[in-house]
Nucleic acid binder design. Structure first.
Length: 693
DNA sequence: ATTAATCCAGTTTTT
DNA sequence: CTGGATTAAT
């Protein structure tokens, strides 16, 4: 039984009575075992697995816990537990209620937001504040959705004073943004939670207990999501010192005020650390002590034995640092998957990754980001998306921008024309156009030249006769669009053929295969490969081009592999958005941001680039007292280590010609002797504290 | 007006 | 190196 392995503290928590239970679990105190134990206890009490909801921060974490439960019970029982991220769970339930959902990449919706913003005029007069930029306003809006249940206008006023005169325009933009998303059938991450919260308010869900992992990173939106569900029993596990998602609206106040919110709350504290050696733990604790305490922290070290002290590595310049670390890793006897290199921001990782590969050390970097950002992957998925959601004008425009002579404006007109020809359905507009319908809105520009109106249209189609397409295609009304040239018509022809052959298919794998083999996709791939192989002097390097094609082909293979796990196209596409970021490529040494390292542990850990400005991020730390969050980030990073911990920094970046001071956390950790530099850094951070008040 | 080419800045963190 | 913004060309 899972309970027999727990220590008394963990056992008490796992066997807590129903109600509102908060478990304060510091790093490495067996939080996962306790949650698994709790689930075992619930099942033992006769609770059905489908009455248990387990919310985790990543889907991988959920899968791991379910897997451990399966080890004690059975895969069948464990599989019935509702487990996943807030987003994944919301998605599943909304699908269960038969909603059609097409998740879009955040960047896509940001583009949409920008286009709506750009339609507005801001008249700002000299002394007034500049209006917020489109991108910034989008992020502000998204943060508001996550961080607040107040009205947007009021919240904005508090957070960005001086913007009052634009508030009306902002609200108008936001309103149109919401309406447009609805029109095109788009849903973003926030919408999943917001829609699910609405559902929970109306429908009582069958959960007897909700378990929340990483409770310290719950934001207001997620908090209200739980409130709306109003489960009879809550089991929240978290650690105040590991709250690192303030940028996403995570509010430590939520975990901090748990006992005030629920007067009947019971609090359990897990204080025995099983993960790290004494020197690693004491370093972590020394630093986190600089933060104000909400709960007293008395971590007990369980492990004993001759442990190595954490080692500080100092380098003259950045590349030397990466090189030396790569060498140290090469010499290490620790198996590669048990080694992690942890950094504050992703941008830094390119240097170390390149260096590791150069030295022949295999590594894996979390974030399928690069994969899903690749244009060829986007294009393949956009084509698939059009079959699942023919209302997706953005996907259509992206595809047609590859056609010569067709830009976003013409693509939009083509899309709207096809929708009109299909009485609201773009696909039937392609396959069975109603030729009684005029696909084009009157364009004032053309009609000023009245004379040419009619002849232009007829003539424009006949001039494509030499292309040799069949009559049925040549009769398609959309070809009358005046801006089309031969290349554009050819592109449309191939695209229509693809749509026709995809239409009867339902399974993701054959659909993806068909897309990858299509002329449309091959044409796009050819363009991308050529562009990637074009040298500065304009010549195309054939070898490079072949390599580019090979990389594109491999991504296609991976896409088909991924598609194999899904039974419907819509689910496949959504999963690529919902879980895509959790995909990691390769095997070997782990390259992780601090945020991505949360919840993981490794024998050997390198925390790199510990320079002031980078870690802590000075731009952030100097504002709004966020130095505490940066400190928590440091705490999370170092507590990933079980046995060996290396901290490193470089004094100089040759490439950018900038010098660095060491991170103030290195002083706080006692690795550097406090000097004038430290005093100066401390002042900078405290300056931020002042500003807050 | 729209597309295509060129230039320029920039890069926190996640579902 | 990408994506956005500016500019040149159609």
């Amino acid at each position: 039984m899972p309970l027999s392995r727990l220590n008394p503290e963990q056992l008490a928590a796992a066997k807590a009575p129903f109600g509102h239970n908060l478990i304060i679990a510091s790093a490495g105190t067996g939080k996962t075992s306790t949650i698994v134990g709790r689930i075992g206890y619930l099942l033992g009490q006769g609770i059905k697995p489908e009455e248990i909801l387990l919310l985790t921060f990543t889907n991988k974490a959920a899968a791991e816990m379910v897997e451990r439960v399966a080890g004690y019970f059975s895969r069948e029982v464990a599989g019935r537990i509702e487990a996943g991220t807030f987003h994944a769970v919301s998605y599943r339930w909304l699908k269960k209620m038969d909603r059609s959902i097409i998740l879009k990449q955040p960047s896509e919706l940001k583009t949409l937001f920008r286009s709506i913003y750009d339609k507005r005029q801001f008249h700002h007069i000299g002394a007034e504040a500049q209006p917020l930029s489109a991108n910034f306003l989008h992020d502000v809006y998204s943060l508001w959705q996550n961080a607040s249940v107040e009205e947007f206008g009021e919240w904005l006023e508090k957070r960005h004073p001086g913007q009052e005169s634009y508030a009306e325009i902002y609200l108008d933009i936001v309103e149109e943004f919401e309406a447009t998303k609805k029109e095109y059938g788009f849903v973003n991450f926030n919408d999943l939670l917001i829609q699910m919260r609405e559902v929970s308010k109306r429908t009582k869900l069958p959960f007897r207990e909700v378990l929340v992992d990483e409770y310290q990173d719950t934001n207001e939106l997620q908090g209200s999501w739980i409130d709306a569900m109003d489960p009879p029993s809550l089991f929240c596990v978290g650690d105040y010192d590991q709250s690192i998602y303030a940028f996403n609206g995570a509010n430590i106040h939520i975990i901090g005020s748990f006992t005030r919110k629920y007067p009947d709350a019971r609090v359990f504290t897990l204080s025995k650390n099983y993960r790290s050696t004494a020197p690693i733990l004491s370093l972590a604790n020394r630093v986190i002590e600089y933060n104000e305490r909400i709960y007293p922290k008395q971590l007990e070290v369980v492990r004993s034995g001759g442990a190595m002290q954490p080692k500080l590595l100092i380098f003259d310049n950045l590349m030397q640092q990466y090189e030396a670390i790569a060498q140290t890793i090469r010499r290490s006897t620790t198996p590669h998957p048990q080694i992690a290199v942890i950094f504050r921001n992703n941008a830094t990782a390119d240097g170390i990754e390149a260096m590791l590969r150069e030295q022949g050390i295999p590594c894996r970097r979390k974030g399928g980001r690069s994969f899903f950002d690749a244009k060829e992957v986007r294009a393949a998925l956009d084509l698939a998306t059009l079959m699942a959601n023919p209302k997706d004008m953005m996907a259509f425009i992206h595809i047609f921008e590859y056609a010569k002579g067709i830009g976003s404006a013409t693509a939009k007109e083509l899309f709207e024309g096809l929708v009109a020809l299909g009485h609201g359905d773009m696909l039937s507009g392609i396959l069975h156009p109603d030729d009684q319908v005029n696909p084009f809105k009157a364009r004032t520009v053309n009609y000023q030249l009245g004379l040419f109106d009619h002849p232009t249209h007829v003539g424009s189609v006949s001039r494509f006769a030499h292309l040799g397409f069949d009559e049925k295609f040549m009769a398609h009304p959309i070809l009358k669009h005046p801006a089309l040239n031969a290349d554009g018509v050819t592109f449309i022809h191939d695209f229509f053929r693809l749509v026709a052959s995809l239409r009867p298919k339902k399974q993701p794998v054959p659909i993806m295969r068909e897309i990858l083999a299509s002329k449309t996709y091959r044409f796009i791939a050819e363009q991308l490969a050529t562009k990637r192989a074009t040298l500065k002097n304009g010549e195309v390097d054939e070898t490079k081009k072949n390599e580019a094609h090979e990389r594109i082909r491999r991504k296609g293979v991976l896409l088909v592999q991924l598609a194999g796990a899904y039974r419907s196209l819509e689910k496949f596409i959504n999963a690529m958005v919902l879980g895509g970021g959790e995909l990691s490529e390769g095997e070997g040494v782990n390259l992780l941001t601090v945020h991505a390292s949360k919840g993981l542990e490794f024998d050997e850990v390198y925390v790199i680039d510990l320079m002031d400005g980078r870690f802590p991020n000075r731009k952030l730390a100097s504002q709004a007292g966020l130095i505490e969050e940066e400190r928590r980030l440091f705490y999370v990073a170092v507590t990933r280590a079980k046995n060996l911990l290396y901290l490193s920094y470089a004094k100089y970046d040759k490439f950018k010609d900038t010098s660095f001071f060491p991170s103030q956390f290195l002083y706080e950790a006692g690795l550097l002797k406090k000097d004038q530099v430290y005093e100066k850094l401390k002042q900078l951070s405290e300056g931020g504290e002042e500003e807050r008040k």
